[in-house]
Design a protein around this nucleic acid. Structure first.
Lengths: 210, 210
DNA sequence: TAGATTGTTAATCGATTAACAATC
DNA sequence: TAGATTGTTAATCGATTAACAATC
């Protein structure tokens, strides 16, 4: 990996904070403002920007519009990113209807499922049989896929995506998926995120007692 | 924070790996097996266990059943954790129907929404008006809440949860929520996770070209 | 026993923060 | 100009890894 993952994640956060600042009518920000907005230090904001070659003006801070523009470029927002989903269950369906992606220039173009009863070629976003995955990915030059299937099905889906030539995967199955170097995998484990909260709530209560 | 967040997250991963090992008929594991399963080093596995006071037997590794038991205790699995959701939109509804929580001893007991048309007292999991949030939380001694509302509504919901006495929050709104020390917040930003994948796919392609 | 694995300490690595010269 | 903020380097902090004595 070229750039630290946290660093890119913070870039996303800066961007949403900047959009909020813009809504409030701000025109420029200082590293200090951004730091407050995302819960970081001003040093970190400036360091992150320097990593990505973003510069402001000394004494004048950063112009919000320019900053958003630059961050969007870095995050690949100059073109709409076409994304497919595998798995039309709870999570998959929610993501199909999720407004957040569209707003960020990411478009779900199709969903795939093994269950024939879930296939639907008439909807706003088609649900297709898994057999059509490879041809669809090739024909439409899709690079990004989301896995939203149960954990036992996930490794198989990963293989199918790799074989179809997918270059990046966001995985919601509660299993750590691996891929060869040429494919990026980001595992999001919702159960584990909730377990995390529960752990700290309990830990906090225990430490309170002593 | 008492223990590093990554450390707790890995604990969750060890647990699911252990469950898979168990399904395969294994009775004991070595730190090396677990490391392979979750993509860590054996040093790290043993270090993590030592942080939580988990010990195995030299030469004999760890008994899977005991290990699962111990990890479950640490993660608060000795009792079913009751959780509420705020927001019955796409994400909120998916989480209500999500099987993954139940399997892990976490139970969604109610959902709250401002939209009266979404209220439903007859379903398997009730959807209640947001006005009933506080009394429900108090009456049922709920400690954990999930936020699944748009970003502009999220800070208000956070306040309402705090006022109701919630001690831990898992936030899916794309905004970094803050809370006083006595409340734990874990922010999961799905858009940002996908952006992350896109960034690395692009970065990889660029580095390939040079 | 000999060999393999744990548990822990020390070394390394990377990420965050502090500090400050440059400069608007 | 004087004061404030950037950009960057050095210092600090924390997390991961390597190494190895203890021991089953």
């Amino acid at each position: 990996m070229i750039t630290a993952k946290n660093c890119v994640a913070r870039l996303s956060r800066y961007k949403s904070a900047l959009n909020r600042f813009k809504t409030l009518g701000f025109v420029k920000v200082f590293s200090d403002n951004l730091a407050d907005a995302v819960g970081a230090t001003s040093s970190q904001v400036r360091k992150d920007f320097s990593v990505f070659g973003i510069s402001g003006s000394k004494r004048g801070g950063y112009k919000i519009d320019e900053l958003i523009e630059k961050i969007n470029n870095i995050l690949g927002k100059n073109e709409v990113q076409q994304v497919i989903i595998v798995g039309a269950g709870n999570i998959g369906s929610a993501l199909m209807n999720f407004k957040g992606f569209e707003k960020e220039g990411m478009k779900i173009v199709a969903c795939f499922d093994t269950d024939p009863t879930k296939v639907n070629r008439l909807g706003n976003i088609q649900v297709l049989p898994i057999e059509e995955l490879k041809s669809f990915v090739l024909n439409n030059k899709i690079k990004i896929g989301i896995i939203a299937v149960p954990d036992n099905a996930a490794p198989g889906v990963m293989e199918a995506l790799l074989e179809a030539g997918i270059k990046g995967v966001l995985n919601f199955a509660p299993i750590q998926l691996k891929a060869p170097e040429e494919c990026v995998v980001n595992n999001v484990n919702i159960e584990s995120e909730l377990e995390n909260v529960i752990y700290y709530v309990n830990a906090l209560q225990k430490s309170r007692k002593t």
